[in-house]
Amino acid sequence: MNVFGLDVGGSGIKGAAVDTETGELVTERVRIKTPQPATPRAIVDTAVEVVRRSGWDGPVGCGFPAVIKDGVVRTAANIDKAAIGFDLAGALGQELGGPVTVVNDGDAAGLAEMRWGAGRGVRGLVLMLTLGTGIGTSLFIGGRLVPNTEFGHIEIGGEDAEYRASDGARKREDLSWEEYAARLDRYLHAIEDLLWPDLIVIGGGISKKSEKYLPHLTTRTEIVTAKMLNEAGISGAALAAVPDQPTEKAAE
């Protein structure tokens, strides 16, 4: 089954049609800069343009950086606060004239990693962290998603964790890799004590530089880097639109 996957990010909105059996993109990826200001209406218009440029007419899955309940945006940590309460799935569906499923972007990336990437076949408790401007999280037990976890916002040292341990924090404060690893390590230990996961998967652009910080981490949990990389958000968003629970095959 082919589904169009949309990945809404802070700098760009990108998408492509995806073969949801293999996770491969079956059309060329289209990317348009995220509008500024990124109002809900502007995001819808840009996302629709991405789909139309691809010539797609069919089901669409969309990953969005917020808690999503029944297609409605419920939080706005790193997006325009006007998005709270906005029926994104309904607005996109009306414009595109077809079914649209919207999920948290961290959950979308996690779905892709569990089905085709680093979490494939792991039946225990798996936590994926997407380290970018903030910290996106997705949690799986027995291959099944626990949606809308927000572990990037736990308090570390009196501050929001993503303010201290995201890749955005590393860049903003010009931290050395050793300094950043110490921040990330403290966060990971707090997460371990809360969840006792069997595996932690680290994704986001920073996963490409894992040799810079992984050797400095002291967690008891096995940590691996994501395999899907830039395609995770698109492929996972498409997978979220498939009616059945998509990661069961990975957990068999």
Rank of each mutant, 00 (worst) to 15 (best):
G117D: 10
F151A: 00
I154Y: 00
L175W: 09
A112F: 04
G106P: 05
T133L: 13
T149W: 01
L111C: 15
V146M: 15
S176R: 11
T149V: 15
E162M: 04
V126I: 12
F140P: 05
I156G: 00
M114N: 11
M128G: 06
I135L: 15
E179C: 07
L127A: 02
T137N: 01
A118M: 07
A109W: 01
T133F: 14
D107E: 10
I141R: 12
G157M: 06
R144V: 01
R123D: 07
A108M: 08
G119N: 13
A118V: 10
I141T: 09
M128E: 03
I156W: 00
R164A: 06
D167W: 10
S176H: 08
V126W: 06
T137P: 01
P147V: 05
W177T: 09
P147N: 03
T130E: 05
I135D: 13
R123V: 10
N148M: 02
D105C: 08
G106C: 06
I156P: 00
L129N: 01
A109R: 12
G121D: 13
T137Q: 03
R120G: 13
I156V: 07
L139K: 05
E162S: 06
L145T: 10
A112S: 12
E155V: 03
G132N: 09
G121Y: 15
G132W: 05
E150Y: 00
G142Y: 02
G168M: 11
N148V: 03
I154V: 10
V146T: 15
T133R: 11
E155Y: 00
S176E: 11
E162K: 08
L131V: 14
I154T: 03
F151T: 00
G157K: 02
S138K: 09
G152K: 00
L139Y: 06
D174W: 08
F151N: 00
F140L: 06
G168H: 10
I135S: 14
S176Q: 07
L129S: 03
A118K: 07
L131M: 14
A165S: 15
G157F: 03
I154P: 00
R164Y: 00
G106N: 04
W177I: 09
A108P: 09
H153G: 03
S138I: 11
G124K: 02
G134S: 15
D105M: 12
D167P: 00
D167C: 08
I141Y: 12
G119C: 13
G134Y: 14
Y180C: 03
G136C: 15
E179L: 07
A112C: 14
G117Q: 05
H153R: 04
S176V: 13
G106V: 04
G143Q: 04
D105H: 12
D107C: 08
D167S: 15
L125N: 08
R172M: 04
L129I: 02
A109H: 10
G121R: 14
L127H: 01
D174G: 15
D105K: 11
F140E: 06
G117Y: 05
A118D: 07
G110E: 07
G134C: 15
E178C: 05
S176Y: 08
G157A: 04
G152W: 03
G132C: 08
D167N: 11
